[in-house]
Amino acid sequence: MESIKIEIPSLSENIRIVESFIDNTKEKYQLNDDIYGNIMIAITESVNNAIQHGNKFDKDKNVTLTVHHNEEAVKFTVEDEGIGFDFNNLPDPTAPENIDQPHGRGIFLIKHLCDEVEFKNEGRILELSFYLN
């Protein structure tokens, strides 16, 4: 399985580097537009979460983004240097008391856009898989 990795300091403006990385991935592996759209949203959301919640915008902490590719799937790994979080007890963004909240939909959205989502290392590592067929 081939993999490509980048590391970015935890600054919001570095999302454009992530977008370029995803564009390059689309071209390299000739991903179709449907999967590309899902990847773009899910990965930028994951990296934003890593920058904001994981690394608390600390530019001395990095977010590592890796893509693995084989015939069946493309899998992205997003890793931060934060303290982790309790991914099993997140508030439900569809609950009436949360519907108007400006935040709290990221993980919910990510889970719906990916074919598989796995949390590792106490939530510091997120593995997002997209099936190619």
Score class of each variant (00 low, 15 high):
73 A>G: 06
95 A>K: 04
32 N>K: 01
46 S>N: 11
60 D>S: 13
15 I>D: 02
93 P>D: 03
12 S>C: 01
101 Q>D: 10
20 S>P: 03
25 T>K: 02
93 P>F: 03
29 Y>S: 08
26 K>H: 08
1 M>P: 03
124 R>G: 05
127 E>Q: 07
97 E>A: 11
21 F>R: 03
4 I>V: 15
36 Y>Q: 10
1 M>A: 00
98 N>V: 04
114 C>R: 00
30 Q>T: 04
118 E>H: 00
24 N>G: 11
63 V>C: 01
73 A>H: 11
60 D>I: 14
84 G>Q: 02
65 L>G: 10
90 L>D: 04
31 L>I: 03
90 L>Y: 06
54 G>H: 13
37 G>A: 13
12 S>Y: 01
39 I>W: 11
30 Q>S: 07
121 N>C: 00
88 N>R: 10
43 I>Q: 06
6 I>D: 12
38 N>I: 08
121 N>D: 02
41 I>A: 15
22 I>V: 13
86 D>S: 07
28 K>Q: 07
126 L>I: 12
57 F>H: 11
58 D>R: 07
33 D>K: 09
19 E>A: 07
49 N>G: 08
78 V>Q: 12
113 L>N: 00
37 G>E: 10
89 N>Q: 07
112 H>Y: 02
31 L>R: 01
53 H>A: 09
76 F>S: 01
112 H>F: 00
131 Y>T: 12
100 D>H: 03
108 F>K: 07
35 I>F: 06
54 G>A: 05
123 G>M: 02
75 K>C: 09
14 N>H: 04
93 P>H: 01
129 S>W: 04
5 K>Q: 15
4 I>W: 11
23 D>G: 11
89 N>T: 10
76 F>I: 05
92 D>F: 01
63 V>I: 09
123 G>D: 02
77 T>Q: 15
44 T>F: 07
59 K>L: 08
108 F>S: 04
13 E>N: 12
104 G>I: 07
15 I>A: 06
44 T>P: 13
55 N>T: 10
54 G>W: 06
62 N>C: 05
67 V>K: 13
49 N>Q: 07
105 R>E: 13
24 N>M: 07
53 H>Y: 14
9 P>C: 09
80 D>F: 04
8 I>M: 05
101 Q>H: 09
91 P>L: 00
16 R>T: 11
69 H>K: 15
91 P>W: 03
58 D>L: 09
43 I>P: 13
52 Q>D: 12
39 I>V: 08
1 M>V: 05
109 L>F: 03
4 I>T: 15
34 D>V: 10
75 K>A: 15
132 L>C: 05
24 N>Y: 07
18 V>S: 04
59 K>V: 13
28 K>T: 06
128 L>M: 05
68 H>V: 12
26 K>S: 09
24 N>D: 10
42 A>F: 09
101 Q>P: 01
16 R>I: 12
69 H>R: 15
106 G>H: 05
81 E>H: 13
60 D>C: 12
97 E>K: 04
61 K>C: 12
87 F>A: 06
40 M>N: 14
61 K>W: 11
65 L>P: 11
103 H>L: 04
95 A>M: 01
